[in-house]
Amino acid sequence: MKVTITEWHGAAYWRWNTDEDDDICGICRHSFEAACPDCQLPGDNCPPLWGECSHVYHMHCIHKWISQEASKGQCPLDRQPWEDKRA
């Protein structure tokens, strides 16, 4: 071995693992990389949330929606009962 690695300093961006071409929250129309309208900073505290129906929204947005009487606890896009996707 002529050279060996002693240290490696990496750098990486992380993003939400949402569909890259359609990374907008269906409720607030903001990108998942940006925060929901109620948060000032994007990142760990404003994550997206997947449902069993495979739709995804900002966690804050879908929770707000579900808490409304009119939502009947359904996903806004397919009218299926909303269930958090199990990890």
């Binding site: 690695i5 002693t6 240290e7 490696w8 300093h9 990496g10 750098a11 990486a12 961006y13 992380w14 993003r15 990389e33 940006a34 994007p42 990142g43 760990d44």
Partner: peptide, 15 residues
């Protein structure tokens, strides 16, 4: 390899 990595939030960094 001894790795030291920075994991950065996309929105905040100008790279």
């Amino acid at each position: 390899v001894d790795l030291n990595i920075l994991v950065l939030g996309t929105a905040s960094w100008p790279f």
